[in-house]
Design a protein around this nucleic acid. Structure first.
Length: 583
RNA sequence: GUCCCCGUAGCUCAAUGGACAGAGCACAGGUUUCCUAAACCUGCGAUGAAGGUUCGAUUCCUUCCAGGGACACCA
C-alpha cells in the first residue's frame, strides 16, 4: 500500500528523492501517534539495511546521522518549507513531517461540500467488469449472497471513484443439477403443486422453492432411484423438455423476481445478467474447439482440463453425459462478457471455497486465450459462519438474506419505537452491510445476530447516527444566521483544541484511503477510516459547543462539522450504505 | 495423502516490515439545566509455540501445534 496520493505527499517525496539521489523509491507513511506529525519516512533506516544503499555507509555512522543530514538538506527546500511546520528526526532514524495548520485549513476549504471529495482519476481509461452476487434460481438467497453482494457493490463503487468505466454483472445458475433437484422436490413433495401456491405472496412461493430444493438434494444423496431421476431431469432442463418446461419457467421467474426485490433493498443494480443456460453453450463450443489443440483432453468419457500439468488439479469441463459443467460455463462467461463489454479488467467476486477452482478456470482460460486469461482476476471473500459452525442449505440452518434484513429492521423498531419504517429499513441494511464490510474481505465472518446487528460502537448505525448528527447541527446553524459554506477561510485561523486538530489532520487522508481501498480490493480500509473519523468527531462534539461558539471559532467548528458530514456521506456511499439526514 | 487459507484482549475485528499492537462488545466506574446519550470519558485486558532473516517482525522464511477450505463428471 502506498500513501502518496495527496499533494503534500508528492511534494515531500519529491524533495526527499532530490536529496538522496535518483532511482530511489522513497516510502512515506502516516505515523501512528500524532506527535510524530503527518508523514514519516524511513529512507535513512533503509539506507543502512539495504546493500544497494551503500551510498550512505561511507559518510554517516548511523541512520540517525544520515537522517539529520537529509533533514538539513530538506530545510533548504522552499517548496517544502511552505507546507511543513516542522521536520524532525526521531530515533532510530525516522524523519517526520508536520504539515502547517494554515495549509491544511486551505485544503479543508476546498473539500467543504465537495460531493466528489475522495475521488481520483487514477484509473481513467480502464474498462472494468465486476461480477458478484450470483444467486441461483430455485435456491434461497442467503447471507452468503448478501456478503458477496456487499463486497462486490462496494468494490464497484470504489473502482468508480477512481475514474474508470465500470459495469456490474450478475451470473445466475438457471440450469444444472441444483435446478433438477428443486424440480424433483416440486414434483414429488406430496404436499403442494405449483398451481396450489401460485397466488401466494412472492416470499411464500420462494420459500416453497427452497424447501423443494432441500427435499431434492436430500433425495439425491439418500435414494439411488431419486438420484437417477434427478439426473434425467437435469437433461430435461437443459433441453427444455415440454414435460417440465412450464414448471421450470414459472419457478425460475419467481426466484428472479424475489432477487430483484432484494437488490432494491440493498441499493444494488446490474448492467448485465448472465445465465448458465447461455454460457454453457458458448463454453461447450470453446472446449470442443480446443480439444483438437490439446488444451483439453478426453478422460473416462468426459472432457477435462489437465490442471495437474499446471501445478493445479484436473477438472471436468464437459461431463460424460455431454453436458457442460460449471467449468465450461465459466469459460463461456468470460468470453461472453468480453463480447458485451471489451474489458481491460474483469473481477469475479465469490466465496473463497472455490478459490482453487478459479485458479484452474483462469489457467484454462489462459490456455485458450492468453490475453483474456491475464485480464480476469478472482476475488475471494471469506465465508459466513454461524457461531455453531458452517451453514448448509441441505441441513438447514441457513440465514436467509431477506429475513436477515427483516430481523435487523425489526430489532431497530423495537429499540427505537419512534423511528419511522423507512429509516429503520435503511439503518437495518446499513447495520448488516457494515458488519460484512468492516473486516478484510478474505476472512470468514462469524455471524451472530446479537453482535452482528449491533447498533452501537463499531457499527453501521453509529456512522449513520454521527452523520445525522452533523446534519442536525448544520441545519440548526442557519437559525443563527450563518450559512457555513459562506465562511471565509481566513477567519478559521484560530487556536485549535486537540480535538479540532485531530479532525483537521484526518480529513486530507480520505482520498488516499479511498485509492488504497480500490487498489487493494479492501473496503474495510474505508470502514476503518470512517469509524475513526466518526469517533474523533463525537469526541470533539462532546467536548466543545459548536453553535454557541463565536466568530472564527464557530466558523471553524461548523466547517469541521460540514466536512465530517461530507466524508461520512461519501465514505458510507463507497460501502453501499445510505446516510440518513435524520434518525 | 496433496495443495491453499487462517491462528492478535473473555468475544468480534484492525494494524502498507517500523516508533508505545488500534477499536467495538462484555466487565468496573463516571458525564446530560447544554447543538441527537445510537454519544462521550476513565479503567481492565492480546500477537498459538519454537527457531531464523532484519537496524527493526503481528507482518517475511522454517518446523511444530490448532482450525477451515479445495482436490473429476455439484455449484
Amino acid at each position: 500500500m502506498n500513501w502518496t496520493r495527496s499533494d503534500y505527499a508528492e511534494k515531500i517525496k519529491k524533495a526527499i528523492e532530490d536529496v538522496v539521489g535518483g532511482g530511489v523509491e522513497v516510502e512515506l507513511t502516516h505515523p501512528t501517534v500524532p506527535e510524530h506529525g503527518d508523514y514519516a519516512t524511513n529512507v535513512a533506516l533503509v539506507a543502512f539495511g539495504d546493500s544497494k544503499w551503500r551510498i550512505a555507509n561511507g559518510k554517516w555512522k548511523s541512520p540517525l546521522e544520515f537522517a539529520e543530514y537529509i533533514k538539513i538538506q530538506l530545510s533548504k527546500n522552499d517548496l517544502l518549507q511552505a507546507i511543513c511546520e516542522r521536520i524532525e528526526v526521531a530515533p532510530p532514524g525516522f524523519i517526520n513531517f508536520t504539515i502547517k495548520k494554515e495549509v491544511l485549513l486551505d485544503s479543508l476549504m476546498q473539500s467543504v461540500n465537495d460531493e466528489q471529495f475522495g475521488e481520483s482519476k487514477l484509473w481513467e481509461g480502464k474498462k472494468i467488469i465486476i461480477e458478484y452476487t450470483d444467486p441461483n434460481p430455485f435456491k434461497e438467497f442467503h447471507v452468503g449472497h448478501l456478503f458477496t453482494n456487499a463486497v462486490g457493490e462496494s468494490l464497484a463503487r470504489l473502482f468508480e471513484s477512481q475514474g474508470p468505466e465500470v459495469k456490474r454483472a450478475n451470473y445466475q445458475g438457471d440450469v444444472g443439477l441444483h435446478v433438477a433437484k428443486a424440480i424433483y422436490g416440486i414434483l414429488w413433495n406430496g404436499k403442494w403443486r405449483i398451481e396450489d401456491v401460485k397466488n401466494e405472496p412472492l416470499d411464500v412461493r420462494t420459500k416453497h422453492l427452497g424447501e423443494a430444493y432441500a427435499l431434492g438434494a436430500k433425495a439425491y444423496e439418500e435414494d439411488q432411484a431419486a438420484k437417477e431421476e434427478i439426473i434425467a431431469l437435469n437433461k430435461k432442463v437443459y433441453d427444455l423438455d415440454p414435460e417440465i418446461k412450464e414448471l421450470y419457467e414459472t419457478g425460475r421467474k419467481w426466484s428472479l423476481d424475489a432477487f430483484e426485490q432484494i437488490y432494491k433493498r440493498l441499493d444494488t443494480r446490474f448492467d448485465f445478467y448472465y445465465f448458465e443456460r447461455d454460457t454453457g453453450r458458448v463454453g461447450e463450443v470453446l472446449v470442443k474447439e480446443h480439444l483438437k489443440d490439446g488444451v483439453f483432453e478426453e478422460s473416462n468419457g468426459a472432457i477435462i482440463f489437465p490442471g495437474e500439468k499446471h501445478g493445479l488439479h484436473n477438472r471436468v469441463f464437459i461431463n460424460s453425459q455431454g453436458l457442460p459443467t460449471y467449468e465450461a460455463k465459466d469459460l463461456g462467461l468470460a468470453q461472453t462478457k468480453y463480447k458485451d463489454f471489451p474489458y481491460t479488467h474483469s473481477y469475479i467476486v465469490t466465496g473463497n471455497e472455490i478459490k482453487e477452482y478459479f485458479k484452474v478456470i483462469i489457467a484454462a482460460l489462459g490456455s485458450v486465450d492468453p490475453e483474456l486469461g491475464r485480464k480476469v482476476k478472482h476475488v475471494a471473500h471469506g465465508m459466513v459462519r454461524l457461531p455453531t459452525g458452517k451453514m448448509s442449505s441441505r441441513a438447514g440452518g441457513v440465514i436467509g438474506g431477506e429475513s436477515l434484513l427483516d430481523e435487523a429492521k425489526k430489532r431497530l423498531l423495537q429499540a427505537y419505537p419512534e423511528m419511522d419504517e423507512e429509516t429503520a429499513e435503511k439503518v437495518g441494511v446499513g447495520a448488516v452491510k457494515y458488519t460484512l464490510l468492516k473486516s478484510a474481505i478474505g476472512t470468514d465472518i462469524i455471524f451472530d445476530f446479537d453482535k452482528s446487528l449491533s447498533f452501537e460502537g463499531d457499527s453501521g448505525p453509529y456512522l449513520q447516527y454521527t452523520y445525522a448528527r452533523t446534519q442536525s447541527v448544520l441545519e440548526k446553524s442557519t437559525d443563527y444566521g450563518l450559512p457555513s459554506t459562506a465562511v471565509d477561510g481566513r477567519r478559521l485561523t484560530v487556536d485549535m483544541s486537540q480535538e479540532e486538530l485531530a479532525l483537521l489532520r484526518t480529513f486530507y487522508k480520505f482520498p488516499e484511503v479511498v485509492s488504497a481501498a480500490a487498489e487493494n480490493l479492501a473496503p474495510n480500509l474505508v470502514a476503518t477510516y470512517v469509524i475513526d473519523l466518526a469517533q474523533k468527531y463525537n469526541a470533539f462534539y462532546n467536548k466543545h459547543r459548536i453553535l454557541e461558539a463565536e466568530g472564527g471559532q464557530k466558523d471553524l467548528r461548523l466547517v469541521l462539522t460540514e466536512v465530517v458530514g461530507t466524508i461520512l456521506r461519501n465514505g458510507l456511499g463507497l460501502l453501499g450504505i445510505f446516510a440518513p439526514e435524520k434518525m
